[in-house]
Amino acid sequence: MSIEQQYRTRAKELLSSGEVKMVIGYSKGSTPDRRRPAFISTPEDVETLVLDGACIANLSGYLVTEGLLSDEKRVAVFLRPEGIRAINILAAEFQLNAAQVEILGFNTEGNEPTALSGSKVDDFAELIGTLKGIIPDTAGEELYKKLEAMSPQERFDFWQSEFSKCIKCYACRQACPMCYCRRCIVDNNQPQWVNTSSHTLGNFEWNIVRAFHLSGRCVECGNCDRACPVNIPLRLINRKMAGEVLEAFDHFAGSSQTQEPVMASFKKDDTETFIL
């Protein structure tokens, strides 16, 4: 039986037994190479689920849709390792109760999906341990190295040129499972903390605010990068920040659901006086 069929069968069992109220997975898209998020609530519909090498979007963000988990019922979701790490972060930041999430874990090596065993987020702890420090998707690595070799001024010029393309559509934010704020700082208009204008300064403000907010939280799933309609290589900013956080704090985002947020936690006995 193909892995796709196995997962359909499992999804069907979960829905038929009432263990979950919904399965969030992938179905065919508008072109042969596209997959789209699918929300399945009846056992008959599991046949529309697709699982193949084109299933790359991180679907974990849908779990924090307002009201979805508020009835205490469970939801199953197809997740790659980065998505599973995202569940850990969402649980650590009290955005969801991980017990309500049934994980249909898979990985995509090359073009073929492989099954990951486990169904609760903690089942994948060992796997996540082995991934520590490994860049999940090395797309853009050549450019990354080039950027690292640049002088600060050259690097600034590169990002200025990239950010000048930004249209502030916020697709990066909306596609990001970590951008769950009900009201983003840039949408706060009483007062308007951050200008809405999409000029050079405004675009820098937006992209830098986001990069900092994601430091130590980004799981590098690439959703933002793929969502960007003007092709800004957003993943490279986050890759840089993830590397810095790993080096400075030995923090690999999403390692467990009890992991303390690196930028939002402190200890009373911290030797550094500026903390408190």
Partner: peptide, 11 residues
Amino acid sequence: RCIGCGSCTYL
């Protein structure tokens, strides 16, 4: 599945 970004409207 709409995530509520403005990509469609801005393009």
